[in-house]
Design a protein around this nucleic acid. Structure first.
Lengths: 351, 351
DNA sequence: CAGTCGACCCAAAGCGCTTTGAACGGCGGC
DNA sequence: GCCGCCGTTCAAAGCGCTTTGGGTCGACTG
């Protein structure tokens, strides 16, 4: 059933039927109801391809994400995507996903943008000095970045206050008396990770403590790396008494390393992780419940999609730049720093 | 730059240019080269919307997945998606993702299928007695299922041999002398989980052992549930000496419960997990390296996409039904069953 | 009462592509 | 020399929708 048939059946012109269906005011209420009823009855669905061609709008969002040498797809991504889908669905938008290797990224945007496959693109995880952004800005194509692009870029973005979060977490640890804090970070060429490091360093410096590079680790945020890094950290002297992890996954690995070293959380070692609220790894259900810096990556996805909608509606990118604060949620994995002596004993006993 | 402009510039008709570009034989080689060169030079990209309208083909795959009450998005999904994207991209196909609640599922397929948004749909995790499948089959719309639909369904699918895998794993444990095997399973209304249970039960029965319902648990495959279930299992008598987990995530949780009970892997307790080869949770990098039943969910995604392509090309669904064998990879987390006495002592000592 | 103005509806022109059916030479076969 | 054929090209008809630019008619001004 297409428009032509439907309108023939109704004895109306395609124009009128189309307008009735799309809520234009030039149609009498009586006619509109008649049209609506007939459309419903015959199960009429407008062809998106035709509509797309006629309007030039795709009613679709493109989600582009980087996938390196066909490994390493972030488990966080799916949560983010869920958020995007939620609001896109509400607006009747489809979602096109385009994984892409760093090399092909530019081409991918060009393709999506130029040929009208999507009305806006969402991209995540801008690296440092990102060429992609520049290009996108220049093209004027609606785009929203999840993460933070270069500060001067005229582009819509949503980021969480990574620096602030880890600053706060670091200060909290310092206040508890911790002087040797290990950082299990994501890859620091990614902006979010670099920001977190900055935040922690600032907190330490404020307290007159020297950040210890030998306790700072960075790499893919996997359970495995959490374990490896924590293990390495626990071989340094003086021993760290607190761990700050960039994800719950890493914290999971760290927990194991800590347990293996015969140390206890939070008595011997405090643990804080950044929590993106992944339903499969709930920080509050761990043992002990974990102190976290928390921000919902799913909510971020939803908001980013809304921003994309706004951009499509013509809103200025300058007014669509948000940095969300991050909560520090104190639970049971943090506590006062043990006296150095006690820590030593525990570690020695475990060997 | 559109076809009209390009052909005007070349002094050719749109027909000829279109044909030259799409590799039809009715064009002289000289002309084709000229057209190709001009298209390249002017950066001509055909409009997918127009092409779609004209041909009726969307050049897109729809990936539909269920998302319950807006929680519980499976981290495995992203790996699967990566596989799909890989081959879709190679074929120049876009990928449309549509998360959907169980209630809306049927509507979602209808929409995607009927209005030509996509050329085929991929759906995963069919439940028992699945109404969706029936409907899809009846419509004749190309579809591929990841997982196993009802046995008689005339539909393309790819599943791994879940029953065989857990049968094999169970037999292996039995051969090692284990008599009390706990099962930490996914939700058993999902086919894959039901199959795994069957596999384990078969292995136990073959050995003359009674499956112990009080050691069988089922629920979302999260770290948390792994921990909870394992903890519960360790409160039963006689104690289980082996755990079979439906995912590495659950195994991660189980490990912790086991450790907390003062038991050691594999001396006191053996552990086997099903491994979907998620890069963030590598079974071979755990401590000890974990014995697993292994199958790549990413490879499955890729193959499913290929099957979708085949269906689009008109291949018969009957010839597109595959069940992949699953390897049992023996690593360090399994060993001979301890004598019952020793197990009791260890457990008692830990309390 | 002529003229204006809304309210309502329509015919037709695209959107940018594919594809059908036909035209046009140049060729060998009879 | 005429016919039919092949290789090559073209004009034009869609695909199914939106949207522009009128029309028509009754009601409302002055």
């Amino acid at each position: 059933m297409n428009l032509k048939e439907l309108s023939a059946r109704l004895g109306l012109s395609q124009t009128t039927v189309s307008r009735a269906l799309n809520g234009y005011p030039e149609v009498s209420e009586a006619t509109r109801q008649r049209v609506l009823a007939a459309a419903e009855r015959h199960g009429y669905r407008p062809s998106p391809a035709a509509r797309r061609l006629a309007t030039g709008r795709a009613q679709a969002l493109g989600v582009v994400f980087s996938i390196e040498r066909n490994v390493l797809l972030d488990p966080h991504f799916v949560e983010f995507l869920a958020g995007v889908c939620e609001v896109a669905g509400r607006h009747g938008f489809d979602i096109l996903v385009s994984p892409t290797t760093p090399a092909q990224e530019l081409v991918t945007y060009e393709r999506l943008a130029r040929n009208g496959t999507v009305d806006a693109v969402i991209l995540s995880g801008p690296g440092e000095g990102d060429q992609r952004i520049d290009r996108l800005v220049r093209s004027g194509f609606p785009a929203v970045v999840h993460g933070r692009p270069a500060d001067d870029a005229r582009i819509a973005y949503l980021d969480v206050d990574n620096e602030g979060a880890f600053h706060q977490a670091g200060r909290f640890l310092v206040q508890l008396g911790h002087r040797h804090v290990a950082l299990l970070n994501g890859e620091e060429r990614q902006r979010f990770a670099a920001d977190r490091r900055k935040g922690l360093e600032a907190a330490l410096c404020e307290a007159g403590l020297e950040p210890r590079d030998d306790l700072f680790f960075s790499g893919q945020m996997s359970v495995e790396n959490g374990y490896r890094f924590a293990r390495a950290a626990l071989s340094r002297t003086p021993l760290p008494t607190a761990f700050l992890c960039s994800s719950v996954l890493m914290a999971l690995g760290a927990q194991r390393a800590i347990a293996e070293a015969g140390l206890r959380v939070p008595d011997d070692v405090s643990l804080i992780a950044h929590d993106d609220e992944m339903p499969s790894f709930r920080a509050d259900h761990l043992h002990p419940p974990m102190t976290t810096t928390r921000s919902s990556i799913r909510a971020a996805g939803a908001r980013v999609a809304e921003m994309a909608m706004a951009r499509i509606a013509g809103e200025d990118p300058g007014s669509l730049q948000e940095v969300w604060p991050v909560d520090l949620v104190v639970r049971g994995s943090t506590g006062p720093a043990p006296e150095t002596r006690r820590t030593r004993e525990a570690a020695a006993g475990a060997r």
